[in-house]
Amino acid sequence: MNEICNTAAIFRQGNTNCGGCGMSITLQMLRRAVGANPVHLVIPACCGAVAGGTFPQSTFGVPTIMSTFASAPAVASGLASVAALNGDPTRIIVLAGDGGTFDIGFATLSAAAERNEDILFICYDNEIYGNTGGQRSSATPQGAVTSNTLEGKLEQKKDILAVMAAHRIPYAASVSLAHADDTQKKFAHAVAQKGFRFLHILSPCPTGWKSEPALGLELVRLAVRSGLWPVYEIFDGKRYAVTIEPDFSDEALDLYLSLQRRFQKSGMTAADLRPAIERNWQSLRALSGRIIPGKREG
């Protein structure tokens, strides 16, 4: 790889994100995929908005607008419309957290997807309302303690990719930041593709997950390995392709849980999560049309 020129960063040094933030990693990886493409960023109220730094300094290295919490896909639709009307190659990218994607921004997201707006929507899913100090969202996994579910969340995480697939958008994918090649390939495809693209990123949050900042990518790796975080692509809402095969390791899953204090109180174990993971993978196998044993020996 060539020398990295930091001045060309989408997300510049001197930002105020926590050390080890998955959103920061996402933005660094995004830069490599974007390359020389002109880009405008739309960011709803979330950690990303705070990451934008204080007026008038530019923490984001591309023109950026902060939208209200629920509105990012709508604002992006406006920007994308102007770009299209003017034959402007600028790619419009939304960077939203799970709150702005799964919850408050859900209707707006669904509508923009249904209209197949020319937008790349990136959800950095840290499974928590990080910006307000760590409350549950519909992306918070079962058993995770948040500041408003002190005994651990009772409900399961929403399957946002299934929802996005139901919109039959040209491209939807989950991403593993721990697999730089996978991330790079998907980012590059998603930037280049026309129409509505959705990327779902498991974004480690040391503050919310109560984990070591240095272990963020390792946690993602464990989630991928164990099958907890399936990494796959959906083309046009119908063609499914698994991009990273897990080994469905219970050891990895238990390690994933034990390295995060948010699961301590509920005592969630691999055995608790495994049935749901297996169901999820059965349906994923059926959809991807590839019959691979759900669990490999050894």
Binding site: I65, S67, T68, S71, V75, S77, G78, S81, V82
Partner: peptide, 11 residues
């Protein structure tokens, strides 16, 4: 929201 985006892009 769309108006904000359109306007922010100069339309």
């Amino acid at each position: 929201g769309v108006c904000i985006g359109g306007s922010a892009a100069g339309a």
